[in-house]
Write a protein that binds this DNA or RNA. Structure first.
Length: 584
RNA sequence: GGUCCCGUAGCUCAGUUGGAUAGAGCGACAGCCUUCUAAGCUGUUGGUCGCAGGUUCGAGUCCUGCCGGGGCCGCCA
């Protein structure tokens, strides 16, 4: 039960009936009507801006129009009271009987309580991580991985048909270098003493690849030309690196449904060429010369004619090259073909999660998708900002010397998956994040991960203790749903029910905005509600959840606890954080 | 030079996508354990929402221009 959806419908019905009085209403204006919980509780339970957004078209003063709407809303069964306030807000106080119904539905529905139909089954593709398969993942990849995964969970909860995708950059010069580096390790495995020249990957993680190549091919790859050994070494290295990456992701509980190979865009069929030709046919491709960029005016620059995409026609700042001077495609060209492929697979809503250093790439990619899909498909790019690692307030040094970086696995091993995930999501994606390895392991209220998990554990503990204290209690969902919930009349209890009532709406709003952090903040507040109410029971024993002399109130309060536990569990599932039974 | 992100309490950050008197946590100060996990809770303190205009019933939120911090800027991915 989504109380906001319910009352939005009531308001729309009330407003629609005004048309019979000759009052002008447009669908566009109706869509701007929102029903929300006012910040100030003295303004009632729900407030709507209906009169204010409709007044101009209707040709009435907001407060006069509010009067007309209010009269009709007052007749709605669930409404106890209607007030008009400020510039034309309509404040609704709902009947006390509404809140028990909300809690009842939360208890009955279980974790599906927050699920929304907002997405209407629309196909959405979320592409995230997409780290180059040239080495293990480092902490920098971590935030994008967690963010993308949680966003996908969120969209799924909001009723979208979500596909999680990873784009493997296995076609560029990087993987050629990887192949050469692997060949060097292969020679090393054969007993040669090697030195790794500048420009190749020096990391030890390629040693096992060299060993594997030796085991498989003996010394044969020593005696064939590079054109023969390079693809073999390259593919073996990519496969090994992708295994490694999949393992790293699994440690974070991140799983993609599709791993899409960049090379598959060129072999066996050249889809990149097809994409370019498609754009050319639309007149979006030309041969031209780019202006020298103002900032980077070093001596390196030379004017050259190249194949350009007219991205300026779609909102980009300059046109973008598609071919390198050696005749191969730029990364951008591949990316156009890739996003076209996604559109061809039916993904008209695409979301890419990138690191902030790719910010300059957003406009051209959006321009390209718009052009290549004839405006049918849209791309939202979520940029995740930098993560700065700290330990006890001191920055953790990350040397630029190759091989000396903090890997994702090290961080997960040290602080745990749940802490990493929650902290990465406890911030807007476009704000930089300070991550303190010591702090996230603290078991105190200063640590939001702990605080929220503790709330869940505490709720579960209350339910267990209730069973122990009153052995014949029935804590099944139907039994709790049937409890006399109207007896939850303490302000603290009502506040919790109202918080729970906001959850379905929160999921919709967060999904619409592509902002999973809102879920994390909501859970923190809900956790705080539970901790508060629990402590009120210390000062005021009649507010304790378990009242052995009153079975009725006890079941009602346990239903409330169950509602909290359910929503915490549901929200944590979206964040990909475990809802623990007890803290240890 | 262009472009993107950020600027809110001493610190770290939210702000329901334009709503009413801007909120949390930390810090500081004062309290709460014979009791369902004190691993917690309550109260007090704290603001020129970077600056200046504009849009309108109404701006922390949208637009323009500045200031400050960061990212990126043809043949890297």
């Amino acid at each position: 039960m989504n109380i906001f959806a319910l009352f939005t419908q009531h308001v729309r019905t009330a407003v629609a009936s005004l048309a019979s009085e000759g009052i002008v209403l447009s669908e566009a204006a109706l869509d701007r009507i929102v029903v929300e919980a006012p910040r100030d509780p003295t303004h009632g339970d729900l407030a709507t801006n209906a009169a204010m957004v409709l007044s101009k078209e209707a040709g009435l003063k907001p407060r006069d129009l509010a009067e007309k709407i209010a009269t009709r809303l007052a007749a709605v069964a669930d409404v106890a009271r209607v007030d008009i306030a400020g510039p034309g807000f309509i404040n609704l106080t709902v009947k006390a009987s509404v809140w028990p119904r909300v809690l009842k539905s939360a208890v009955e529905t279980g974790e599906a309580f927050g699920r929304a139909t907002l997405g209407k089954g629309t196909k959405v593709n979320v592409e995230y991580v997409s780290a180059n398969p040239t080495g293990p993942m480092h902490v920098g990849h971590c935030r994008g991985a967690v963010f993308g995964d949680a966003l996908a969970n969120l969209l799924d909860a909001a009723g979208f048909d979500v596909t999680r995708e990873y784009y493997i950059n296995d076609a560029g010069a990087q993987v050629q270098i990887l192949g050469r580096s692997a060949h060097l390790r292969y020679r090393e495995a054969l007993g040669e003493t090697i030195s790794i020249p500048e420009g190749l990957y020096p990391g030890d993680y390629l040693k096992p690849v060299g060993e594997a190549l030796k085991a498989r091919h003996g010394d044969r790859l020593m005696h064939v030309p590079e054109a023969e050994w390079l693809p073999i070494c390259r593919d073996a290295a990519i496969a090994a690196m992708m295994d490694e990456i999949r393992g790293d992701l699994a440690a974070l509980n991140v799983r993609h449904a599709v791993f899409f190979s960049e090379r598959s865009l060129q072999v066996p069929v050249d889809k990149v060429r097809a994409a370019i030709e498609s754009l050319r046919a639309d007149g979006q491709i030309y041969e031209g010369v780019l202006e020298r960029p103002k900032g980077a005016d070093d001596d390196e620059w030379e004017e050259r004619e190249q194949t350009l995409f007219r991205s300026t026609a779609f909102g980009d700042d300059v046109d973008r090259p598609l071919m390198k001077s050696d005749g191969t495609y730029t990364y951008f060209a591949s990316d156009i073909a890739y996003h076209k492929d996604k559109a061809d697979r039916g993904f008209l809503e695409q979301i890419d999660v990138w690191g902030a250093d790719h910010g300059g790439y957003v406009k051209r990619m959006q321009a390209a998708l718009k052009a290549i899909s004839g405006g049918r498909a849209a791309l939202d790019v979520k940029l995740v900002q930098l993560v700065r690692l700290f330990r006890d307030g001191e920055p953790v040094r990350m040397s630029k010397r190759s091989g000396d970086f903090v890997t994702l696995r090290e961080v997960v091993d040290e602080v745990g998956r749940d802490a990493v995930r929650f902290m990465m999501l406890y911030r807007k994606n476009d704000a930089t994040l300070d991550f303190d390895l010591a702090k996230v392991r603290e078991q105190s209220k200063d640590n939001p991960v702990f605080y929220v998990q503790y709330a869940h554990a505490r709720g579960r503990s209350i339910l267990r203790n209730a069973m122990a204290a009153m052995a014949d209690l029935d804590l099944s969902a139907p039994a709790l749903a049937a409890a006399p919930l109207y007896r939850l009349d303490d302000p603290g209890e009502l506040a919790i029910v109202q918080r729970l009532a906001q959850y379905p709406r929160l999921i919709e709003a967060a999904a619409q905005a592509h902002e999973p952090h809102r879920v994390a903040f909501y859970l923190y507040e809900l956790a705080s509600d539970l901790h508060s109410q629990w402590n009120r029971g210390k000062d005021s024993p009649h507010l304790r959840f378990i009242m052995e002399n009153d079975r009725q109130i006890t079941t009602a309060r346990l239903a409330l606890v169950q509602g909290i536990v359910t929503v915490l569990r549901s929200g944590l599932a979206i964040l990909g954080v475990e809802a623990v039974e007890e803290m240890r």
